[in-house]
Design a protein around this nucleic acid. Structure first.
Length: 430
RNA sequence: GGAGCGAUGGUAGAGUGGUUGAAUACACCAGUCUUGAAAACUGGAAGGCUCGCAAGGGCCUCGCGAGUUCGAAUCUCGCUCGCUCCGCCA
């Protein structure tokens, strides 16, 4: 959620926050109508609140007088009548104030975050900026196979039966693929908790709608998550949701910042708008595993730590010796809540392209406002924290990358050195 | 799933209709004393919204929501969460 008070503030320099935000909306390719509406509604809201409070103050005074007079044994019927009349007016005004308050809130939920100044302006993924490139695309002397072909031939990935048992975009992993999946989770969690200073966490895989609102997915992305019928329970689309909401409505201690967690969870996505895309293979599934990195930081530190968090995700790819690129997303390609976002893209020899395997975002105080997560030092006023998160990494896509990058001509697959101890010492899948 | 009990400030814990945003204790912060610390003493301390250039006002918050009343932490109803016992269960 954006800061309405900042939007109201008059310009101290050449451009006001309002102007900057408006520009940012345009750069994202969003309309600015909602913003104008928000400002108008908010002005009305304030007027209504002031009015309601003034009458309420009068009424409170009268009630106090009643108490006093009664103690003195005097007649109060006149004042009580007066107060009753005020009560009607109060009710009316409060209703109006609340209605406007809700409207302002509802509109503000639909507005995306302001982009950071370092984010390149652009309308689509093609305008993302390459920040760095590690390794070179894996080359083979034979024609590289796609992961589903490798998986099916090796008898370790079964899409057909998953279709029968559940439906499209679900998969059975068997044997070495299942073991590799499990090993990858273990490897990620070990690395981040033991070497990068994150506290391990396994969150609930189901959350309520308040949590989804807290991280910014609701109301905008309701259709992208699976809902449990007849309840306010929803399957998580990422561990970001439960873990960010871990501190919802709390005031943290400044000296405890930054708080960092690495959380393992399955992720469930309905992929509502994605029919027809990536229908084959493991790229776009309704269910996948992910290890998510999260930080709650002091505002002054968030950009520095954003770099750090991203490098932690990169470290995984480096240890697995997978070629990748780091992309800085442009304004038009960035997610709703992010102020700045890096995508890590891993090289896939099968299709011969880089594919996203991690997305590392700085939300600044956007999520913290919605979820009301603050910190406080001494006698200072509480301030909103900044939240960061990024995949470290998506497990299924890592499995794909390994199968494709480590494949051999005969269809067998080598196992990266760092993973062998998680595979009972095995060095290949055949 | 059945029965019962409960929800007050950082914690403990008063408070059953009228200066109670809230006693008291502990914890916390600052000061006095002390070479320093402890003890003792003194003082401070919740959050949000809103008006105001400011000083300083006002409103709301005792799990959440609605109601009764001139007035609600206190009364009524609904909800949520927690605890205990029984049953069931990986």
């Amino acid at each position: 959620m954006i800061d309405i008070k900042l939007l109201e503030k008059k310009a101290e320099t050449e451009t006001s926050y309002f102007d900057e935000y408006k520009k940012s909306l345009q750069n994202r390719g969003a309309t600015t109508e909602a913003l104008d509406q928000l400002m108008e509604m908010n002005a009305q809201r304030k007027k209504a609140i002031t009015e309601a409070e003034q009458v309420k103050a009068q009424q409170n005074k009268l009630s106090q007088t009643v108490g006093q007079l009664k103690r003195e044994g005097k007649d109060t019927s006149e004042i009580m009548r007066e107060s009753t009349a005020l009560g009607e007016r109060v009710r009316e005004l409060e209703l109006k104030a609340r209605d406007l308050d809700e409207k302002v809130f509802a509109i503000s939920l639909t507005l995306p975050n302001k982009c950071h100044s370092s984010v390149p302006v652009g309308t689509s993924a093609s305008e993302n900026k390459e920040i760095k490139k590690m390794g070179t695309p894996t080359k083979f002397s034979f024609k590289a196979k796609e992961h589903w072909e490798l998986g099916e031939k090796l008898g370790i990935i079964d899409f057909e039966r998953a279709g029968k048992v559940t439906g499209t975009r679900f998969t059975f992993l068997k044997g070495k693929a299942a073991q590799l999946e499990r090993g990858l989770i273990q490897f990620f969690m070990d690395l981040h908790s033991q070497e990068h200073g994150y506290q391990e966490m396994i969150p609930p895989y189901i959350v309520n709608s308040a949590s989804y609102q807290g991280t910014g997915q609701f109301p905008k992305f309701v259709d992208d998550v699976f809902h449990l019928q007849g309840t306010d329970y929803h399957l998580i689309s990422t561990a970001e949701v439960p873990v960010t909401n871990y501190y919802r409505e709390e005031i943290l201690k400044e000296e405890d910042l930054p708080l960092q967690f690495c959380a393992y969870s399955p992720c469930f996505r309905s992929e509502a708008g994605a029919s027809g895309r990536d229908t084959k293979g493991l790229i776009r599934q309704h269910q996948f595993h992910k290890v998510e990195l999260l930080m709650f930081t002091h505002p002054s530190q968030s950009y520095e730590l954003h770099e750090k968090l991203t490098s932690h995700a990169e470290r995984v790819l480096e240890l697995l010796e997978l070629p990748y690129k780091r992309m800085l997303l442009c304004t038009g390609d960035m997610g709703f809540g992010a102020a700045k976002c890096y995508d890590l893209e891993v090289w896939l020899p099968g299709p011969g392209e880089y594919r996203e395997i991690s997305s590392c975002s700085n939300f600044e105080d956007f999520q913290a406002r919605r979820a009301n997560i603050r910190f406080k030092s001494g006698t200072n006023k509480p301030q909103f924290v900044h939240t960061l998160n990024g995949s470290g990494l998506a497990v299924g896509r890592t499995l794909i990358a390994i199968l494709e990058n480590y494949q051999r001509e005969d269809g067998s697959v080598a196992i990266p050195k760092v993973l062998q101890k998680y595979m009972g010492g095995a060095s290949e899948i055949r």
